[in-house]
Design a protein around this nucleic acid. Structure first.
Length: 273
DNA sequence: ACCCCTGTTCGGCG
DNA sequence: CCGCCGAACAGGGG
């Protein structure tokens, strides 16, 4: 499930464990989740260290522990985080559980497309290197119209929706957000991205604004308590059979098809090709 | 049983 | 070397 604001929601799920020292660490050592990380090292490095802060960047999570220890995370398709009581009994798909004095921080992911990493920093460098190297977050100052325009220019033939899914340019955007943006700016998802640069505009202001607006709205609606988005969004209609376009005075039946390997939903009336 | 899936990575191909 | 594309990963839910 998790895209931008959902990842932020899950980040906060571990907040009850803030300030506590890690005691016991439960691991599923063979889980694909750990990939290039040695799970035993997580136990060794985090034991006795305090959970002090957490961050998200796009779909990436970062948990800070005392003495320069860091846990990185990605939720893949089905990853989830939650906090349980210290007496929690790990379940089948709980790949990592960090027990504190009062809480258990649980990372669960049945499909195991997610990932957990471990870092250790010392001295003046505050964050792990991979974190510092992430592309500009969509709501940051560095995410400029020019940055977007340059990116589109480099891939003029790729469908705009496909480009929106690229984490190197639009960190945090996933399938539903990409569809939502195309629908809001009334652009067919298969539109070659170069087309947005036509007509003398030095940048695609509509796309840039829609991106930033949806990110802000998502953080408010989903990132904070995971409320149901309003019916004025495409979100609530896109997978319903016979779902209709929520644009005022449209109401056309939405279309669904595969685009470059991803399920895509759009309004055939509002989003002409 | 069968088909679906809010993600990423890898190998093949042109 | 690059862009594009489908498959693979793995399990639960409808």
């Amino acid at each position: 499930m998790p895209e931008l604001a959902e990842v932020e929601f899950y980040r906060k799920e571990w907040d009850p464990g803030l300030g506590q020292a890690i005691g016991r660490v439960h691991l599923h050592p063979g889980a694909r989740i750990f990939r290039d990380t040695d799970p035993k090292a997580i136990r060794r490095e985090l034991k006795g260290r305090k959970f002090v802060a957490s961050f998200t960047h796009g779909k990436n999570l970062l948990f800070q522990f005392s003495e320069g220890r860091w846990l990185g995370g990605h939720l893949g398709m089905t990853g989830k985080l939650h906090t349980a009581t210290a007496s929690y009994r790990p379940e089948k798909h709980d790949h990592l559980v960090l027990f504190g004095e009062k809480t258990a921080l649980v990372f669960t992911d049945p499909r195991m497309f997610g990932r957990i990493t471990l870092d250790r920093t010392s001295g003046p460098r505050k964050f792990p290197g991979w974190w510092e190297a992430l592309p500009p977050a969509i709501l940051s100052k560095e995410f400029t119209k020019e940055f977007v325009a340059c990116y589109l220019e480099r891939h003029p033939k790729t469908p705009i929706k496909t480009l929106l899914l690229n984490q190197d340019a639009f960190p945090g955007i996933g399938n539903w957000m990409a569809d939502e943006i195309c629908w809001r700016i009334r652009l067919h998802p298969a539109t070659p991205s170069g087309k947005l640069l036509e007509g003398g505009a030095p940048f695609p202001p509509k796309l840039w604004k829609a991106l930033r607006l949806l990110c802000r709205q998502s953080f408010r609606v989903i990132g904070d308590g995971w409320k149901t988005p309003p019916n004025s969004w495409l979100f609530n209609h896109r997978w319903k059979d016979g779902g209709r376009c929520p644009h005022n005075e449209c109401g056309a039946e939405l279309k669904r098809a595969e685009l470059r390997g991803r399920r895509t939903c759009w309004c055939p009336r509002c989003q002409s090709e």
